[in-house]
């Protein structure tokens, strides 16, 4: 026990009491003035950070879901667009074919009609010509008759004229 009274290992009761008093006062002041607000603030912040992380996770999942939805919609839209384009192409093809066909048939009709008209006109012309020829022949015949041609000449004339008409025809 002698060693506790002097030297390095001395335990001074006064210092002991001062330590206890000092520490208790310090702890009390810091408790009220520092630790409580600090711990409260740190806890609140930790809580906030936890909440923020949770919200972020939730938002991430939500955005992932939306992204997938969006992607699906895009895929669907693309498919639809392709479908529409294909349909349009086939429609256009059909339309083109029908137009060309129609044009062809119309052209054919036109040609046909033209041919018919031409033949009609030709027939008419031939008929008219025939009438003219008959008229002329009659004229000629009349003139010849008037001149008193012999019957042989007359016959030769008519035959000649008829032969000519035939070549025209």
């Amino acid at each position: 026990m002698e060693v506790l009274k002097e030297g390095l290992l001395k335990v001074d009761p006064g210092l002991f009491l001062w330590t206890v008093i000092t520490f208790l006062v310090l702890a009390l002041i810091l408790w009220k003035a520092a630790w409580r607000p600090i711990v409260d603030a740190l806890d609140a912040r930790a809580e906030k950070v936890r909440g923020d992380i949770e919200t972020a996770e939730k938002n991430r999942l939500e955005s992932e879901r939306l992204f997938n939805q969006h992607k699906e919609m895009m895929d669907k839209a693309k498919e639809e667009a392709a479908h529409i384009i294909a349909e349009g192409k086939s429609d256009a093809e059909g339309l083109k074919n029908s137009i060309v066909e129609k044009a062809n048939s119309e052209a054919k009709d036109l040609v046909e009609r033209a041919k018919k008209e031409i033949s009609l006109a030709k027939d008419k012309a031939v008929t008219e010509l025939k009438a003219e020829v008959v008229y002329l022949s009659t004229e000629i015949a009349a003139k010849l008759i008037a001149k008193n041609l012999n019957p042989n000449d007359q016959k030769a004339f008519i035959e000649d004229a008829l032969a000519k008409i035939r070549t025209v025809q």
């Binding site: 006064g14 009491l17 001062w18 520490f23 810091l30 003035a33 520092a34 603030a41 740190l42």
Partner: peptide, 30 residues
């Protein structure tokens, strides 16, 4: 209890004072 203030008591008080000086403003800022 020999309550005379010794060098060690003074050191403890300085340490305690430093604690107060450091942590009370820290608490306000936090």
């Amino acid at each position: 209890f020999d309550m005379r203030i010794t060098r060690w008591v003074l050191m403890m008080w300085i340490a305690a004072l430093l604690c107060l000086i450091v942590f009370i403003p820290i608490a306000r800022k936090v």
